[in-house]
Design a protein around this nucleic acid. Structure first.
Length: 480
RNA sequence: GGUGCCUUCGUCUAGUGGUCAGGACUCAGGGUUUUCAUCCCUGCAACAGGGGUUCAAUUCCCCUAGGCACUGCCA
């Protein structure tokens, strides 16, 4: 595979947002292309006029851009093998279908949908696997002309014949099918529009695709496609069918439980790099065993030989962890810039304060969308917040009263109010009350922040300011 | 039903004809932080089952079970 120029394509159908399964296919295509210094193509498979939308193409392109995946040829972008939208290539497909018709490798089928449906039901009742009978393949030429003259509508079916189709998949290895189980399938609809399996082959050939990398849902389509390649006498590309991404029940990852489309991850505050890293680690692993991998390393190390054949469960908990790792690595300028969109709730607050407050959460944040809830207590009226049972337990400690009293007393005498001075202050409270560790810090933390955990206490007090800090401590004291 | 693919800790995975079956996430415990979190360390936890082949099988072969996908005038 090295002599030949590597050309791969990502070919989504624009029927909604970019799903993580498709995103992974895009990522793998990208990594493979870059690894081999090849070319990546974006092709829009919009032959389903009912479901395809222009907006969807937009969002898919946006999502791909957000991920940072780049392609050399595609709609909008152009390239010498265009157009890259299948809906703009119908003439091409019809021409190739005509060639097949001429060669007798395909035929017009005049059966109505109702007729087919009846046959299908009958087969099902009898427990026999259904496949098209092929009866229209035997109609005489005169009859065909007569039918056409009568204006009867027809589909074009590919004549499958009988043979064993086997191919070597880069991931699944040797795979073979008996063509008899397939049945003559439709390549052109009655309205003249072409069907996926047909367009896909025509385009992959015309666009000189060297490697077809796609989800293993397409594995069963591959023999049909190979038959078409053979019918035209075309070279068959390499196939790599990637195992699917499953949900926690080991079912095809679908909506309903959590996020499944790239834009949802984007909105929840995941970093594109984290998503790519995480997705690339499903069914694949680095030879080094490392898990946090830069894009450069992924490109360098990616290879189908290290890919499993089994599906992988998408574990959002691990993704969150990984995203947290990448957030920690961000420098503070970039961190704040990416966080800004999640701060709309705090419009009236100065950027300076927001920067100070949000930076405290950089080590613990897993998703940007969490920031709002985390920092809210800085701007809320904390005197109105109730204590949870766990908090009350801690406040009930014998030492609590003394700690809070000493704290407010010493705090009132402070002249400077800085992180260091507050730290020192708490140290002194410990000395004077002879309380330390948890029993010293937790009552203060709870009284002042109304939370069981958060950033370093002195840092919070500093931002609150002296007056507010003392006020909050006192307020709790009076109710003790 | 038919066809195809798959099966190592809960999850993602490494790995080999002889290994204490390794790592990561989660969880638990400990250490640092005079607190929580971060961070560090330790621990829990797996070769689907049954037959072969072999001196030896998690690894090779077969069967069973289970899972998933496809089975459209969807892609």
């Amino acid at each position: 595979m090295s002599e030949k120029q590597v050309r791969v394509r990502f070919a989504p159908s624009p029927t909604g947002h970019l799903h993580v399964g498709n995103a992974r296919a895009a990522i793998l295509n990208y990594l493979f292309a870059k690894h081999h210094n090849g070319t990546m193509i974006l092709r829009i498979e919009d032959t389903d006029a009912q479901r395809s939308t222009e907006e969807s193409i937009q969002t898919i392109v946006e999502d791909l851009n957000w991920l940072g995946l780049k392609w050399e040829e595609g709609p909008l972008k152009g390239g010498k093998f265009g157009p890259y939208k299948q809906s703009e290539r119908y003439e091409i497909y019809r021409n190739y279908a005509d060639k097949l018709l001429e060669k007798g490798l395909a035929y017009r089928c005049f059966c109505s949908e109702e007729e087919i449906e009846k046959e299908r039901e009958k087969a099902e009742q009898q427990g026999i696997p259904y496949k098209y009978s092929g009866k229209c393949g035997k109609i005489s030429k005169e009859k065909i002309d007569e039918n056409i003259a009568k204006g009867l509508s027809f589909v074009v079916r590919f004549k499958v014949g009988s043979q064993i189709i086997s191919f070597k998949d880069l991931i699944m290895e040797e795979v073979s099918f008996q063509s008899e189980t397939i049945g003559d399938f439709v390549i052109i609809r009655s309205d003249g529009s072409p069907i996926y399996n047909f367009c896909c082959v025509i385009d992959d050939n015309l666009m000189e695709i060297s490697h077809v990398i796609r989800g293993d849902g397409h594995l069963a389509n591959t023999p049909k496609q190979i038959l078409i390649y053979k019918a035209f006498g075309w070279e068959i590309p390499n196939f790599a069918h990637t195992p699917m991404i499953l949900d926690e029940n080991r079912k095809k990852l679908s909506k309903r439980k959590g996020a499944t489309s790239v834009d949802e991850f984007k909105n929840e505050g995941y970093l594109p790099h984290a998503l790519i890293n995480f997705l690339s680690l499903l069914s694949w692993s680095s030879p080094s065993g490392d898990e946090i991998l830069s894009i450069e390393r992924l490109i360098k190390e990616f290879d189908f030989s290290r890919m499993n054949k089994s599906g992988a469960v998408f574990d959002p908990v691990k993704l969150n962890w990984m995203n947290g790792v990448y957030i920690k690595e961000l420098d503070s300028v970039k961190y704040f810039e990416l966080l800004k969109p999640y701060l709309t709730k705090f419009e009236g607050v100065s950027e300076e304060i927001l920067k100070k407050v949000t930076i405290l959460f950089k080590p613990s944040l897993q998703r940007f969308s969490e920031i709002s809830d985390e920092i809210e207590f800085f701007f809320a009226d904390l005197t109105k917040i109730e204590f949870s049972e766990e908090m009350q337990e801690i406040l009930k400690l014998e030492t609590t009263k003394n700690v809070l009293e000493t704290f407010t007393k010493l705090a009132s005498n402070e002249t400077i109010w800085s992180f260091d001075s507050i730290k020192e202050l708490i140290k002194n409270v410990g000395k004077q009350t002879n309380v330390k560790g948890k029993n010293l810090f937790m009552p203060l933390r709870i009284a002042i922040t109304k939370k069981l955990h958060g950033p370093e206490l002195p840092a919070i007090c500093e931002i609150f300011g002296k007056d507010k800090t003392i006020l909050l401590a006192k307020e709790v004291l009076t109710n003790l």
